[in-house]
Amino acid sequence: MTSGGIRILLVDDESSIRRALRPPLMELGFQVTEASRGEEALQILRGATFDIVLLDINMPGIGGIATLGRIRAGLPRLPVIILSVRDGEEEKVEALEIGADDYVTKPFSTRELIARIRSAVRRAQEPKPKEDTPLTIGEIHLNPVRRSVTKAGQAVHLTRKEYEILFFLMTHAGRVVTYRKLLTAVWGGEYRDEIDYLRTFVRQLRKKIEDDPSNPIYLLTDAYVGYRFTDDPTVVPPPSAEED
């Protein structure tokens, strides 16, 4: 996918970061508009159309989380990538649950950021698959109508819950799905804090769909945040600046 025409709204109160990101992004064909505060970003979004928003969390004024909430209220399908400097996972999880599409932790490399931008925009532009559309990622094939899963043509026997976890993750392939979101989708809202329960099921699921469950390539863990089903198993997950 080329970068031509991708319109980015870069929201960060640190001008040094904006100055560092703007030249390479523009050089690669992205169109970059800058904002230094959440209020300013919301103002800009009212008057222009963008393909993606890069949003810092820790900003003066209304802050990144509140800005994201307002963006989601008006533009539910606009991809938003969170730029977070915090070590704590709580804010990332909060942002993802409010509706962020992805996050990168500072300091990040421009290459990683560009990959995330392209992935998020591509997912947003793809037509939303129908619920009964078969899904194929790598060697994993899932047929929602028959509720069957195969790996390299071999049937994989899953329990009902394992199937529902896999189905939800594959329909959100490439995106981080927080523990709570997955628990709510599969078990219901009252189970949203039973993370250990979920881990047990994911461990079993990996044994069935991964060649080496200790080194998974499909069902990846975003440490302390949630799970991500790869949208391209041939690509090694980009190195993250994850810390702590």
Partner: peptide, 10 residues
């Protein structure tokens, strides 16, 4: 650090 890394990788 983010600015430096983003600039160099950019």
């Amino acid at each position: 650090l983010t600015a430096i890394r983003a600039a160099s990788t950019g």
